[in-house]
Design a protein around this nucleic acid. Structure first.
Lengths: 216, 216
DNA sequence: GTCTATACAGGGATAGAC
DNA sequence: GTCTATCCCTGTATAGAC
């Protein structure tokens, strides 16, 4: 029953896997404190004692869940940096791809954001670096390159642009359910539409500029 | 000891006020579940039983805190709609003013956002309307007016622009502590700087446009 | 590895004296 | 209005049989 060499390393039993999955689900939607080990055990269809057999404590279980979510998220984001096409295209692709992935992996995303935005006030540093750090840096690098080539305005802070882009996606993810209740909002259920408009606005701005509007 | 007519209505005793203040503090930074009535009592320097004397339950106390935060927030936001100056100016003023208020009243802001962004998945509707609803609508109206006057591009969704503006402020508020750890970010502690850059980018876009860059 | 049973702490909430 | 003392429940975590 010992793990074969091929599947070594982070090999976990099927039961442990079920527990992790149930825990991830619950933590993502309701947070750490609101979820009990009883509940997790029930959702995983095992006894509570068994959960404690596989994980030393609730906190340990939580950390494992978060750690997994992080590496998962990193893997996803790693693929977004492909340097092909014009800068506007890459910008567009990155924005849309990021949002799409966030929505596809809503559970993971929610856990990360919980960590990052709420407890982030206390922890911040490590997780920030771990999950978003290099991607943020990569995005900034792309933007800087765009400035060097003359495609982008030189009088603006690339980090600011990156923040705006990422922030817009994060906010959409977080606030969808609220936005949906606003009469004027038509894009709450159309992420592609949102991404398209986002890129359009960031690239061209919102001011009416006769010589600007029809350029591509 | 009954309230004088002049200070009637939502008049609460000094003790109740202290309890509310302590509770608001704790709920804002750690959320509902993570905070205990014991702790609230200790911070308010009263006995736990006394807390239950003033508020029927923990949930009741929480609701009172949230309700206060909402009305407080509404009052603040109400002043931001003043229709004076050019559209770009108003845009600028609104963005900066909103962020400034959020930071000034960080505790209240945190409570609202917690409700809106996390539990929002379940409740959403009421709070959305209550706090942001009319302000969102007002901002959209201003933008529409700008379109009608020809100051703003007509081919974009005003609700999208409003979302971007608000989202940028919310994200800054949430992610400051994380952004601070990114080498490229210089504005984490300079909200005015952030606001200025935000308005600049939203208005003019990021593309290098020779005839665009020097316009004001 | 998995269970039942249980220890022990802390939570929300109440009783009743002052 | 404020307290001390207490109730009851649920939570995390452990012991020990299978």
């Amino acid at each position: 029953m010992s793990a074969s060499p091929a599947e070594a390393l982070s090999q976990r039993g099927e039961t442990a896997e079920r527990i992790l999955s149930a825990a991830a689900d619950l933590f993502a939607t309701r947070g750490y404190e609101a979820v009990s080990m009883n509940e997790i055990a029930r959702h995983a269809a095992v006894s509570k004692a068994n959960v404690f057999h596989h994980f030393n404590s609730k906190h340990d279980l939580y950390l494992t869940v978060v750690r997994r979510a992080c590496t998962h998220s990193r893997e996803r984001l790693a693929g977004l940096g492909s340097p092909q096409g014009s800068l506007a295209e890459r910008f567009n692709t990155f924005a849309g791809g990021m949002l799409g992935d966030m929505l596809d992996q809503a559970q993971v995303t929610r856990i990360i954001l919980r960590e990052l935005l709420l407890d982030g006030e206390q922890r911040g540093p490590e997780l920030a670096e771990r999950v978003f750090g290099d991607n943020f840096a990569a995005l900034v690098a792309v933007l800087r390159e765009g400035q060097a080539q003359g495609a982008l305005r030189r009088d603006l802070d690339p980090a600011m642009v990156a923040t705006l882009l990422i922030g817009a996606n994060v906010f959409f993810f977080e606030a969808r359910d609220v936005l949906r209740h606003f009469r004027d909002v038509s894009f709450a259920d159309k992420p592609e539409s949102y991404s398209r408009m986002l890129a359009d606005i960031l690239l061209k701005g919102i001011l009416a500029a006769p010589d600007n509007t029809h350029r591509e």
